[in-house]
Write a protein that binds this DNA or RNA. Structure first.
Lengths: 250, 250
DNA sequence: CGCCAGTTTGATATAGGTCAAGTGACGTGG
DNA sequence: CCACGTCACTTGACCTATATCAAACTGGCG
């Protein structure tokens, strides 16, 4: 099931694929994008199962799957294309844990000096980045809720819903690699389950018809999964805060 | 054990108590503090077990204990004095979940307009706030690690170590209220355990001499707890990132 | 006095972990 | 081209940490 292909998907979209997630915040304008495109992005291509240090600049995952894991081996977050690899360049704190590629990955990065200039000249970009930082933190909380309140079956279903949603948003839902590249043991490290139990859980999902493999495709019955996991994607989108300045200045 | 006293501790320190945590970042200068002190802080006093909306401005917990909980009832974070109640004013996203007081609380807040002005005029303040945001996110990850890898006993010990550390940093370690105000059921909601099991776990800690009540004091054998939980406070302090600009600009 | 929230205790159930063994695909070196 | 090693996946047997349920106990408070 693994190693179906190691080539990376190509990118024919008019707005570079890579900025697609940042645009979902609704905070960036066309000009922000053109300003970003003008920067000297460097492309790094990493083989599967290698580690990556995002450094002090801005790094965006452009293709492939990555995970961030804690020192104890627990997986903390999963990165799909469009996701910033770390927010260290904003917070100034070293990112906790370590980034590792799951599949071959393409990463686009710019140095700290350029980020600084970009962010200072384009308010929308900063706002979008901050908003995404909050979103990624919310995703972490959702994982925490999964771990403490959901059963293995619900957790796994929830994970699949989330991954599907995030890929869909990036226009990548058709690519089965994103679903098949994680080892069952790795999935377990993310969901807080043993590899053996992940296996049995996936079987149960298959038995229920929520999940199937046709050839080298993966077929999800997303509606069934959503129902099973009570999946609510709100946390992946966020709610903007209206700045009710009057409230205090009255 | 509860309701020992509902009066709030007083604050005789030269630098206002409330800014103490922000100062731990090492990013703020004396001038930053005086600038903050000049602002029109409003004080809100909330009774125990009430909910609080931090709004779009900056709110700092000045005295008492609060928790933030998700929609499902899971507790996501615990706030002690000095902690910002939310970072919504930075990210622009509505804070996930809901803030509730555990004890009577005193909260200091300023409106969005003032925060904006402060943050634009004093770089150090913004840097400190961003750094703390990353730290709070790291604390969330540590809780996640607790839930997925530590036993009930270790988790509970770890929690006590963390709380002790954070209180110590604020000079509040002497106040037993911060340890006794959480119900066992609430502790369970935070640690992902049932109330019954929390009870048995606390008994086990007492049996081992890690924890004791002398009168209305709570005595922790912090060293024993640290050993039990392999507590490493690094995540509460963070590591600053040196901006290696040369790395990309060479 | 009696209520109520919190705590404690005991009995029982179960989700998920651990250990061990076996299968199948793939890649490598002889 | 085959033998072998490795790594993921699968299956079965067993175990245990923790949940759940139910009941009693406690201390403060109206």
């Amino acid at each position: 099931m693994r190693h179906l292909s190691s080539s990376l998907p190509s990118d024919p979209s008019p707005v570079p694929h890579i900025f697609r997630r940042l645009l979902t915040s609704g905070l960036m304008e066309a000009e922000d994008v053109t300003a970003m495109m003008r920067l000297g992005w460097r492309t790094a291509t990493l083989p599967a199962r290698s580690s990556f240090d995002p450094g002090a600049g801005l790094a965006l995952l452009d293709a492939g799957l990555m995970i961030r894991r804690g020192d104890t081996g627990q997986y903390l977050s999963l990165l799909v294309p469009g996701d910033p690899c770390s927010y260290a360049f904003i917070t100034g704190n070293a990112p906790p844990g370590e980034l590792r590629t799951v599949t071959d990955c393409r990463i686009m990065q710019i140095g700290p000096a350029e980020v600084l200039e970009l962010v200072e000249s384009r308010q929308g970009v900063l706002a979008a980045l901050l908003s995404h930082m909050a979103l990624d933190s919310a995703a972490l909380e959702e994982l925490l809720v999964s771990l403490s309140t959901r059963s293995a079956l619900e957790r796994t279903a929830h994970f699949l819903c989330e991954l599907d949603f995030r890929l869909q948003r990036m226009g990548l839902a058709g690519d089965p690699r994103y679903f098949t590249s994680l080892t069952q043991a790795e999935l377990g490290r993310y969901l807080g389950l043993s590899a053996v139990h992940v296996n049995r859980t996936l079987q149960e999902l298959r038995r229920r018809g929520c999940l199937d493999r046709r050839g080298d495709h993966v077929v999800l019955d997303v509606d069934a999964l959503k129902a099973l996991a009570s999946f609510e994607p709100g946390y992946l989108i966020g709610r903007r805060l209206e700045a009710r300045a009057h409230r205090y200045d009255a």
